[in-house]
Design a protein around this nucleic acid. Sequence first.
DNA 1: CCCTGTGAATTTATTCACAGCA
DNA 2: TGCTGTGAATAAATTCACAGGG
Lengths: 212, 212
Amino acid sequence: MQQRIPDATIRRLPAYLRWLSTCNLERVTSGILGQATGFSSEQIRKDLAYFGAFGTRGVGYDVKALRQEILRILQLDRGVRAVVVGAGHLGTALVRYVGQSRQRDLEIVAVVDNDSDIIGTTIGHVSVEPIEKLEQLVEEYDIGMAVLTLPASAAVEIAERLANAGVHAFLNFAPVPVCTKRFDVFVQQIDLTLEMQALSYFVQARQPHPIP
Amino acid sequence: MQQRIPDATIRRLPAYLRWLSTCNLERVTSGILGQATGFSSEQIRKDLAYFGAFGTRGVGYDVKALRQEILRILQLDRGVRAVVVGAGHLGTALVRYVGQSRQRDLEIVAVVDNDSDIIGTTIGHVSVEPIEKLEQLVEEYDIGMAVLTLPASAAVEIAERLANAGVHAFLNFAPVPVCTKRFDVFVQQIDLTLEMQALSYFVQARQPHPIP
DNA sequence: CCCTGTGAATTTATTCACAGCA
DNA sequence: TGCTGTGAATAAATTCACAGGG
């Protein structure tokens, strides 16, 4: 097979993965998985079919094999190491959040900040390093992903440094576009203020109880 | 006019709004706005045309009028009050973040938690209230939106309470679906772990320097 | 008979192309 | 001429509908 897998599919895979990792079942049907994750069964079958048929007709999917396959697609089977830049509240929350699920597939291996008061302390089990060591850390840990939770003023420059050091994937919480000129990096922007503003529209738009 | 405005358009409006609020210009063209926000000029013209023609041919758009119009569409012109449930690192980050932009359009008016050690303290200029006062706060401040930054175990129940109290829009950071049975509420799910896992795919998928 | 896999139909979103007005 | 507004074309995503294997 091997046609391009749509972005929308990629974004759903982690949700499937989480459920498969916690369901304690051997087999599952697209209907059950859909019920659990909130997507339609057709959509799940289509998503899974993109990377080859792993289901058995009349039966369903083998949970363990399917889980392994999704890990492979997402490149999580070989482990991805991430650095969090900015040890403020948001950075701290993220480290704690990701760290508590003791999984080897995605790991935050370092937090970087420029505040000398907190450099040397640890968040979760991750130590806070000075911003100067950025490139060194990327090299040392083979870091492939960076999470930017720092002020807009610093984000652009730091992102550029990371990209030059070989980091190709960013989750950017700073309200400023980064690495706009580079085509070798992928930036997922999350702007919490904009999310809330967009949500405001739905405060009124969603009608009370339209027929299901 | 008055046809349905696509969701994709709604999600772009806040980005336009931010730029319009900070550009210090009187007039703007779709090309300039596109350059600044990273969208195509055609897309911007289409988006803006959904709610009536406000541009002038050959000239562009009046910044102040356009900004006001977007505020109106997003229902931000009458002000939206939000409550943050959970005063952990993520909740704290959000309150600080939204609070520092001293705007009247979207305001976090209360933080709620169940930890007696922090109840009564303030975050930014917002005081932390006990979880028991949830319904009372919704009533008192006419709250239309809730941000859930609490453990999954508590999220479902609290969301239900909020929905019953009249809150119709949620930004949910808890890794569990809430208000799944209700059609009178809109839930925007943000799961930071899932975002990072999806991003992992792009660590390898994005080719180095494909032709622009 | 059940549930997968998949083409076809449909809906949604984006891009193109240009008519029309300041 | 310059830029908006918009129908037409295209692309992307979802849903439908059903053939076919276990």
